[in-house]
Design a protein around this nucleic acid. Structure first.
Lengths: 121, 121
DNA sequence: CAGATACTTCACAGTTTGGTTATTTAACAG
DNA sequence: CTGTTAAATAACCAAACTGTGAAGTATCTG
């Protein structure tokens, strides 16, 4: 049983690759907001915002409610946690490599005064 | 001076939005590899891999050396750290919100048996 | 009912992306 | 120099993405 969903990563990373959408996500971290409120800072049309929101929703990064004629958006942090874990896990695997561990030990374990970068003629 | 580069996030998230490229990144976490070695698991052409690698390089996720006629690729973990930090920071901001803190306290602090969702006729 | 407000959906245009095959460059092996 | 291997580049194509303005839907307001 996998802890992380199969391939929502595709759509989550894709969703976050757009600056407008990242900005919206950051905005929603401060609390829910309506579509118009979210659109306000951006110089693009409302339909464009609407589609950005659909992308974010499809990625599981937001959920939308209904409050009268407004459709308030809420951040859903789970995908953020998942991608952070993925990135961290990958970095950790990289850091755990023997060769790099080796290099790291060489740099830190003894106090040899940092071997000069082997100047070439 | 900013620690994180201005908008490499666009290109980093975009780079990671492709499953082939994520797979390559994971592979490189286990150590450097040549283009042919990286291409081996995938059913796509070598030029396609080459372009994937260019995308990853442009995102700062890999660097490439030269060893004879091979061009070994190496993972560069910095962007991974940056996006993990971004995601975590965003999640932390969300979690820090008063309303959610409030809700959280209501759920945990006292032991009221979860008020039924206010059924509507 | 007739607006007005808050969005969403539609139809279209320009750009980007991910793949292909064919060609080219670089380094090694005889 | 010749051939082979590793990889990059060029030219092209179909699909997906991001924007637009116009029209449609849903909810409040009078």
């Amino acid at each position: 049983m996998t802890v992380t969903a199969p391939d929502r990563f595709d759509v989550v990373f894709a969703a976050l690759s757009d600056p407008t959408r990242r900005s919206i996500v950051r905005r929603l971290a401060d609390g829910e907001a309506s579509v118009l409120e979210l659109a306000e800072p951006f110089p693009i049309s409302l339909p464009a915002i609407s589609r950005h929101l659909k992308v974010l929703e499809h990625a599981g990064l937001i959920s939308r409610g209904r409050d009268g004629q407004r459709r308030p958006c809420q951040l859903r942090p789970e995908p953020l946690v998942e991608i952070a874990a993925w990135a961290e896990h990958t970095r950790a695997a990289w850091e755990g490599r023997l060769d790099r561990l080796d290099a790291h030990l060489r740099r830190t374990a003894d106090r040899t005064p940092s071997p000069p970068p082997l100047e070439r003629p």
